[in-house]
C-alpha cells in the first residue's frame, strides 16, 4: 500500500478547472426526533476525471449520504456539490434526473435489478430512458454484456442469477451508457472474494479504457486494495485523503 501526498481534508479545496466533482463546505443534516443529526460536516473534495476513488470508513460515517449527494439523489443542507458543472442544489427533479440519466451510473450493494425484466432488458433500460434508437441500443447492450461476460445470460431473469452474476449485470447497466461517473455503494458487500475481484478487475479495465470515474463507498479491504485514492470518513468528516498504489494481485 502506498502513502503518497496527503491531499488532506479540512481546508477548502481550491476550485480547480476541469474537476469533475467539487464539494465545498458540504453539510448534510437529517431531522431525527426533534433535533438535527449531522451526517456530513464540512466536506471539501475535488474529484477529477478518470479517478478510481473510494470513500472509506466505518458504518454510519456518511459514505452513502455523500454518494447520494454527488448523484443528485439528495441535496446538501449547506455548502455545495458541483457535479459536471451543475450545482446540484439548484437542480429541479427533472434536471437532476437528466444529470443521472446522461452522466452517472449507480451500482448498489443489493444489485437492485428489476426482477420482471431479463438481463438484457435491465441493461437496456437506461438507454430507453435516453431515447436511444433501437440499433445503437442493441449494439451498446451487446457490448456491455460482453464487458461483463454475460452474453449467454441475456435472456434470463435476475432470479436465475448468482450474486456475482447479478452484480455484473448491475455493472453493465451502470456502464452501458458510458457515463462520466460511476457511483458504487458497497458493491462487493454481498460477494465472495473471487467474485469481488472479478468485478473490481472489470471496473479497473473500464476505468482505463473509457476513462470513467469510479467512486466507491466501502469498508471492504478487497475493494480498498484496488483504489488509487482513498478518502477516509469518520463521523461525517474527511479524516484522511491520500493517493495509493493499487494492488491488483488476488
Amino acid at each position: 500500500m502506498g502513502n503518497q501526498a496527503d491531499r488532506s481534508a479540512g481546508e477548502a479545496a481550491p476550485a480547480k478547472n476541469g474537476a469533475l466533482i467539487t464539494t465545498s463546505g458540504l453539510v448534510k443534516q437529517f431531522p431525527t426526533g426533534g433535533y438535527l443529526f449531522t451526517a456530513l460536516n464540512g466536506i471539501n473534495l475535488l474529484i477529477d476525471r478518470g479517478e478510481f476513488t473510494g470513500l472509506v470508513g466505518p458504518s454510519g460515517s456518511g459514505k452513502t449520504t455523500l454518494l447520494n449527494i454527488i448523484g443528485a439523489l439528495d441535496y446538501p443542507s449547506s455548502g455545495s456539490a458541483v457535479v459536471l458543472g451543475s450545482d446540484t442544489k439548484h437542480l429541479n427533479h427533472k434536471q437532476s434526473a437528466r444529470l443521472r440519466n446522461h452522466h452517472i451510473g449507480f451500482i448498489f450493494q443489493t444489485y437492485n435489478l428489476l426482477p420482471v425484466y431479463t438481463v438484457y432488458e435491465n441493461v437496456e433500460f437506461p438507454l430507453l430512458l435516453l431515447g436511444m434508437e433501437a440499433d445503437r441500443r442493441r449494439r451498446a447492450v451487446t457490448q456491455a454484456l460482453e464487458w461483463v461476460g454475460l452474453t449467454d445470460r441475456a435472456q434470463q431473469r435476475p432470479a436465475q442469477l448468482s450474486g456475482g452474476e447479478s452484480q455484473r449485470v448491475a455493472v453493465a447497466r451502470a456502464m452501458v451508457k458510458k457515463p462520466e461517473i460511476v457511483l458504487a455503494d458497497e458493491p462487493t458487500a454481498n460477494l465472495d472474494a473471487e467474485n469481488s475481484h472479478n468485478i473490481l478487475r472489470m471496473m479497473v479495465e473500464l476505468n482505463t479504457e473509457l476513462e470513467t470515474t469510479f467512486i466507491f463507498a466501502t469498508h471492504d479491504e478487497k475493494v480498498i486494495r484496488y483504489l488509487r485514492r482513498r478518502i477516509t470518513l469518520r463521523d461525517g468528516r474527511v479524516v484522511e485523503d491520500r493517493e495509493m498504489e493499487p494492488d491488483y494481485t488476488t
Binding site: H93, K94, R98, R100, N101, F106, L114, F125, L129, R173
Partner: peptide, 16 residues
C-alpha cells in the same frame, strides 16, 4: 418503492 428508487437512480424523473 424499491423499483422506483432504482428507476430514479438510473435517471427517470419523478414526474415520469
Amino acid at each position: 418503492y424499491g423499483e422506483i428508487g432504482v428507476r430514479l437512480a438510473i435517471g427517470e424523473s419523478k414526474h415520469q
